[in-house]
Amino acid sequence: PEAADLRALARHLYEAYLKYFPLTKAKARAILSGKTGEKVPFIIHDMKSLIEGEQFINCKQIPVLEHQKQMSAVAVGHGVSGIPAAHSGSDFGSLGSGIGGMTPDGVELRLFKSYQSRSAEAVREVTEFAKSIPGFIDLDLNDQVTLLKYGVIEVLIIMMSPLMNKDGTLISYGQIFMTREFFKSLRKPFCQMMEPKFEFGVKFNTLELDDSDMALFLAVIILSGDRPGLLNVKPIEQLQETVLHSLELQLKLNHPDSLQLFAKLLQKMTDLRQIVTDHVHLIELLKKTEVDMLLHPLLQEIIKDLY
């Protein structure tokens, strides 16, 4: 394909990405580096701040007064000004530790329920993005389902990376920052859910992709012709080939000094599959051990017989 066509494809996917994904990397990085002025996220780093902030998890708009009041309480109470940016090297990482024994029953299940409802919403966003990939909706409908079933968790893990730094992650559309130590303080096996995503995310962020690079990379992941059970692989591979060309060109133009970035990115696709396999096994374990846990029907559909 002509370079002009490949650039047009990159632009189209970037526009779709901006349309369907509410929190871009650009916005998340601005929040994480404290460049958003007075709008700072509420920090959840222990049970007390969780109790204060839990009602706002998954809120699209946290009430300003409440939010600011609580934010300053957290900031003053712990001598944290602003939020723990990746470069700050603050002692923030230790704030959430040592509370494992105090965890009230049910907190993990409530958090997991919130995580599920945001994930189901995110699956819808990814589906709309997939439908915007030229040629996707012309594929066999069963193959579209298979591509989403196998691709969507990989996409969601990639999309979490820009929201993370080594100390924690933004949630609730960037309005709450939940610390990595807090996740680690939850009871087993919930404490094991996020750590692999942090490890992946922190490494992934060193590649310094921007939102326009991400849009192409996500499309490449969705268009994987080797998913089990695909009926008609050829047209999927052809679509992926074009997006791969577009991604390669995009990276050359956008990151001229980053050596082997394209190859490094493709390598990440292999790492992702292992993370998804482990994630699915963890959810299956939860299904067996947590009698009170309800699994969202959409997530159930995706996870069932996946790996």
Binding site: R124, T127, K131, L141, N142, V145, K149, L298, E301, I302
Partner: peptide, 20 residues
């Protein structure tokens, strides 16, 4: 098809978040 009912729905129409 029955196994992936919601995914089918999402692919065929724009489902609003409330429907999920």
């Amino acid at each position: 098809k029955e196994k992936h009912k919601i995914l089918h729905q999402l692919l065929q129409n724009s489902t609003s978040p409330g429907d999920l």
